[in-house]
Design a protein around this nucleic acid. Structure first.
Lengths: 166, 166
DNA sequence: TTTCGTAATGTTATATTATTGCGTTATCAG
DNA sequence: CTGATAACGCAATAATATAACATTACGAAA
């Protein structure tokens, strides 16, 4: 496997997907134990589903998969699990897609920037503090006090750009 | 009136709202004439409604107001008008709110950054090229080719921050 | 261990946001 | 005037998200 798949901005084509998922689930489990949170079966399954796709996943796509193994499930089940995962930094919501992706850096707060490939629909996570700082500074300079940044960048990832332009 | 309300990042408390709307409508009308676009009654009304609120407005809020003066109207009427206004840069969509705001700089392309006040719900538009450039540069450095940026910054505007902290 | 309070889940219904498909009307170039 | 195309009307429905309330599971305290 790649030495640290969670740290890649974009998932490489060659990365070991299974262990990448396993790492993410393990990290969430550890974090929950440390913080005294309940990592229930549903929450684990939703996180697995999101990571399995390795691409932004809609709540109703998650719901379908959840039904595959649990027989019945309703929207609130999914949204509640997502709320938990969002609050605790295990997934992010991509506002411009109304969809969810696993977080590659589930420890600690960070202002993330998402790179959304319009071709393969995969999403990379940038987490660049320079960007976050510049935005905070510029906002403050007009008297605005920042609490949250939503930054979603659309374009072509390295792989799709290469395929398109050579 | 304030000398140039359209250029303010945040609408000031004292700005002349009526002329601010009128300016925006006039600008759109001129732009449509120049570009050979049809600025129809519906499109004008939707733009007026969005500017009137001077805050992010949902499609169905627009629909209600539209019904007030036209008797009947269905969702596609609003969404089609919004599509037109979006395509031509007269309004922006705030993805994190599923709502629409008038654009303060309807001429030419620009990567906008939105400042969304969590208290008064007003939205400022930053249009800072430094931010856009830094993001493009950072993205390119990981091989990502940017075509569109969605930047929505939540926090407290100058007025609400003053009210809250003194 | 039992009990009790709270967190999590189940379930039904409904709210909110957005699109599809198709027929009609308006506009403009020729 | 006519024909092509853009805009609009309308009905249905898709897609996303939440409300409200009943039930169950869990963990801490007695």
């Amino acid at each position: 496997m790649a030495s640290s798949p969670m740290a890649e901005t974009f998932p490489t084509r060659e990365h070991d997907h299974d262990s990448c998922i396993a790492d993410a689930i393990d990290a969430a489990e550890r974090a929950c134990r440390e913080r005294g949170l309940r990592f229930t079966e549903i929450r684990r399954r939703v996180l697995e589903i999101v990571w399995n796709r390795h691409a932004p996943t809609g709540a109703y796509d998650i719901l379908e998969e959840l039904r595959d193994d649990r027989g019945s499930a309703a929207p609130p089940t999914v949204y509640r699990a997502l709320d938990f995962l969002l609050e605790n930094g295990f997934v992010h919501k991509i506002e411009s897609l109304n969809a969810f992706v696993g977080c590659r850096r589930p420890d600690g707060d960070h202002a993330a920037q998402f790179l959304i490939c319009g071709k393969c629909r995969q999403v990379g996570e940038l987490d660049d503090p320079d960007i976050a700082r510049l935005i905070a500074r510029k906002a403050r300079s007009v008297g605005f006090d920042v609490s949250r940044q939503t930054i979603e960048i659309e374009g072509l990832c390295r792989y799709c750009a290469e395929a398109a332009y050579g």
